[in-house]
């Protein structure tokens, strides 16, 4: 590892330990230092859970697709690094969800409850299976045959997409019927996952001959993100619903990403600063979309007008504790891949 890599790793490890201790404390004592209320029952932590699981599942779908398309020809090390990042994202996301529980020590009841029609149970199982699949890839797929890798890819695609759709199901009840609903919400969730996964893959595979193809696919996915976002605004307009700032920011980021990638494509740019910028904007757009699908939907009154017209208007601003949890996740995403590299699987 280079000096810069060591610095990143050590700083991330220190942040990881400090914020990890506070998380441990809160998981044991329960969380009272958030700004969550009975109106905003899910906040920054669930937003980050959605975003990180979106990155992780999206990356795993992209890696599975690569295995199915080019087989053994794609560098194994990149796929291994991708899996360690996907594992870190999913694990960090699951911890965010765990922190948000009122009784984190009882989380095992999700499996014991046997409620397999509950979106949360499906999500819990799917994310656990995905983490196992990524560990299997990191540890045991080095000498695996193409057939074994393909079996891994089939399973990973199915479970990842199941996980993505679950994240629509969890908040589906907050979308109203008819024109007031956002019929493009599921599409947005799916697109954002694969789009962010592709962006991470481009950042990982810099210099690979296939990166140019990935960048073009990113262009296609940014168009899908832009248009599904735009369509949901049209649906809101038809239903005379409020179009909130997060949705506008998402569309703006998608549009800028699309334009950057079109300019890059016309100029024949397949890597470098412009592509990195497009990838980072993609990740930012997905995080904003998750704020939109987790937090903003809770701003709307649950009880319809006129019965809710006199309800107090609440706003949600995350507390320092919740921001601390976010730092933990960011640190974890750096620590796990570097840790995998240090242990030697990536060597």
């Amino acid at each position: 590892m280079s000096t810069l890599d060591w610095i990143i790793f050590i700083v991330a490890a220190v942040v990881f330990v400090i914020t990890g201790l506070s998380i441990l404390y809160n998981m044991i004592k329960g969380h009272h230092k958030t700004r969550l209320t009975d109106k905003f029952v899910w906040g920054l932590n669930i937003q980050i859970f959605y975003a990180l699981s979106s990155f992780g599942t999206g990356l795993m779908v992209v890696m599975s697709a690569i295995i199915l398309i080019v087989g053994n020809e794609f560098p194994f090390k990149i796929l291994q690094a991708g899996n360690s990042i996907a594992l870190a994202c999913i694990l960090a996301g699951v911890i965010q969800m765990g922190i948000d529980l009122g009784k984190p020590a009882r989380a095992i009841k999700v499996l014991l409850g046997g409620k397999f029609n509950s979106p949360l149970t499906i999500d819990f199982i799917a994310l656990t299976v995905l983490m196992i699949l990524s560990i299997i890839f990191i540890v045991g797929m080095g000498a695996a045959s193409l057939a074994a890798m393909k079996v891994w890819a089939y399973l990973t695609i199915l479970i990842s997409v199941l996980c993505m759709s679950t994240h629509t199901l969890l908040v589906a009840s907050r979308f109203e019927s008819g024109f007031r609903s956002n019929s493009f919400f599921s599409a947005e969730t799916l697109v954002c996952s694969i789009w962010s996964g592709m962006a991470i893959m481009i950042l990982l595979s810099s210099g690979n001959p296939l990166t140019g193809v990935f960048v073009q696919l990113l262009l296609v996915l940014s168009a899908a993100g832009l248009i599904t976002g735009f369509s949901s605004v049209i649906v809101s307009k038809l239903g005379k619903s409020e179009i909130h700032t997060h949705k506008k920011v998402f569309i703006l980021l998608s549009a800028i990403t699309f334009i950057i990638l079109v300019i890059g494509d016309l100029a024949g740019i397949k890597q470098g600063g412009l592509v990195v910028l497009a990838c980072l904007l993609t990740l930012a757009a997905v995080i904003v979309e998750k704020a939109s699908s987790v937090i903003v939907i809770q701003q709307r009154p649950v009880i319809p007008a006129p019965f809710s017209n006199l309800d107090p208007k609440e706003r949600y601003v995350p507390s320092m504790t919740e921001i601390g949890y976010l730092l933990f996740s960011i640190a974890m995403i750096a620590v796990i891949p570097y840790g995998v590299f240090l242990i030697g699987f990536g060597a």
């Binding site: 009975d38 009122g102 009882r106 649950v302």
Partner: peptide
């Protein structure tokens, strides 16, 4: 004794 405090029911309930 069985509730884990996930709050999914609060999101799902249309009557607050």
């Amino acid at each position: 004794n069985e509730c884990i405090g996930c709050k999914a029911c609060m999101i799902a309930c249309p009557y607050e």
